[in-house]
Design a protein around this nucleic acid. Structure first.
Lengths: 332, 332
DNA sequence: ATAATTTGCGTAAACGTTTACGCATTAAAT
DNA sequence: ATTTAATGCGTAAACGTTTACGCAAATTAT
């Protein structure tokens, strides 16, 4: 039998209202009865029914999180960051994986919405039009994390443009002049576009030649990395490649190994993301690391404190992590 | 403004009760009004407040999932399996990462419980006594997944004992006679015990010598794998090792590489778990693969259909996956 | 044509909280 | 010793659903 606020009230000889006031620390109550009531509550093993409370208060302490079914490596980190902050502030996370099938997507979001979530966080998701329509029509707050959207949805992410400068600068300084970018060729997603743009302008900044065909591959997965090596054949026409996600970089590394290309002697790789995965390869990957944990906790803070204007973009720092896949070469 | 059942009732000129009956497909109602009401509902963009419904029905459609903060590689798979089934049956998943800090653990579970979850699934978790106490004192249904507990909690997992036979049989058939088991030396967790026992008895079955010191390492992490190679030094006293988790096996592989040991020529590795991680190494890891997805969906089915007796154990199949880290050797 | 059954729907209470309002009682101010 | 203010708490309504119960109308059976 679940013990309710009424049971406590009976035992304490006061009204449920008073118990509620005491337990929520709101309104006026006597300090002495308070300790008594709290003692009774714990003694009886009382657990507040948060859903009932939310209903009465017409507000929610649940935030929904949409996670793509694929590359969940960094999603984990973001979620952990969110959760740390969320629990601190007494919020709950309703984490939901979202498949590629659109019908199921809509169902999923629908059931999220019917849970009266306060907000929905989209992790690295490029919502379809139908999904976007459904989300904006409901009045939940939306925040896009690790992605930027061209709509009125605020986002928290790395500065993808600046990040590519950081990477290209680093490779340039290591003597690389012919550089490829693998995994951001798709014109549509904003992140890919920003990275391409940053990449191209960083090349220009250093007076490096820009080969459009060196931006290759659209999917952020392992196969893209493997396929890139096959596509460009040995000897590779560039000395270094940027993998636009850790899993791509692993593909590049393995693809190179399979093709008899020695990394980093023959070919340098630097990865974008910097999850633990980069430490599991031999050699470990050089990488520009994004602060996913921070993105997560910032998202919660922004939500709670309502500090994020619609269509605002909040950037978190990226930093270069040393590894064994970039070698200094003599500039040709 | 959120549209409620009352708004629909007003518009349709009937009572909220009727709308509820129609929308939930329960009780008696006229088929014609039903289509009319449903049309109005979608036109108005009605979304049921599931929490209110749960409150009224004194039942929950939410199941809580406890996920350890570490090795979440296979947890992902389990969760996806659960989610697929759960959404099909109109249940929601409240996924929560659980840290090692005990105080925060209890807080976390407390807030899960205050969400009136129907059940709590523990993914590969060995609950502390305090946690177990708290969980069993509440009357939520508990199911342990990918782990077996010595308590009254039913579990769904691979048959860890049989799995070790499968692995040892395979290695034996490949000519290996001196085999190590890395990552299951801790006496406490049941899974580790079962694996040790299966390992030892499988060795005995083949009349292989049992070296207690060949069962080494307690933590299921990358460092354990690396450290194992350092601990046993070159030349390794065994020809093959079983990594008790993919991440351990990667550690073994990298550790071997660092020590100049060639896999599989000098040293064979077979991994337990079989997540995608095993496909990312060079060579890819041989592995005995667990069916995590199935564990997840079975858990939901078992919950909904109440087919799992307390302290029941449900096994899912494991299968050997070919890779490049086990070589046939001439038995000495 | 009457009785028996079925159908459709409204009324009202319930789920476990919160909270505006107001009434005593006590404490502080004059 | 009054007046004023502050304190503690109870009453009752509200949040958005569901559901037992019952009543009238419609349908079927006799």
């Amino acid at each position: 039998m679940k013990v309710t606020i009424k049971d406590i009230a009976n035992k304490a000889g006061i009204s449920p209202a008073s118990v509620s006031r005491i337990l929520t620390n709101r309104g006026r109550f006597n300090a002495d009865t308070a300790v008594r009531v709290r003692a009774i509550a714990t003694a009886m093993g009382y657990l507040k029914n948060q859903s009932a409370a939310d209903l009465a208060q017409k507000q929610s302490h649940v935030v929904g999180v949409l996670v793509p079914t694929e590359h969940t490596n960094f999603a984990d980190e973001i979620i952990k960051g969110m959760q740390a902050k969320a629990h601190e502030l007494n919020y709950e996370l309703l984490v939901t994986f979202i498949e590629s099938d659109e019908v199921r997507q809509l169902q999923t979001v629908q059931s999220l919405l019917s849970r009266q979530v306060l907000a929905i966080f989209m992790l690295a998701i490029d919502p379809s039009d139908a999904l976007l329509e459904m989300l904006t029509r409901s009045d939940v707050q939306l925040i896009s994390i690790s992605n930027q959207l061209n709509t009125k949805i605020p986002s928290i992410s790395s500065d993808n443009y600046a990040m590519m400068h950081q990477v290209v600068d680093f490779l340039y300084q290591k003597g690389h002049r012919d550089i490829a970018l693998i995994g951001s060729s798709e014109p549509d997603p904003i992140v890919a576009r920003l990275r391409r743009q940053g990449f191209i302008e960083a090349l220009a900044k250093h007076n490096l030649p820009y080969h459009p065909e060196f931006i290759w591959g659209d999917k952020n997965n392992y196969e893209t990395g493997l396929a890139a090596i096959k596509h460009f054949k040995t000897p590779l026409p560039f000395t270094a490649a940027i993998g636009s996600a850790d899993i791509i970089s692993v593909g590049l590394l393995n693809g190179a190994k399979d093709a008899g290309i020695v990394v980093p002697t023959d070919f340098s790789i630097i990865s974008v993301d910097g999850t633990e995965l980069t430490q599991l390869t031999r050699p470990p990957l050089n990488t520009v690391q994004q602060n996913f944990h921070l993105m997560g906790s910032l998202a919660i803070t922004a939500l709670v404190e309502q500090t994020l204007a619609p269509s605002a973009v909040l950037f978190t720092e990226t930093k270069l992590i040393a590894g064994g896949t970039v070698e200094k070469i003599i500039a040709s």
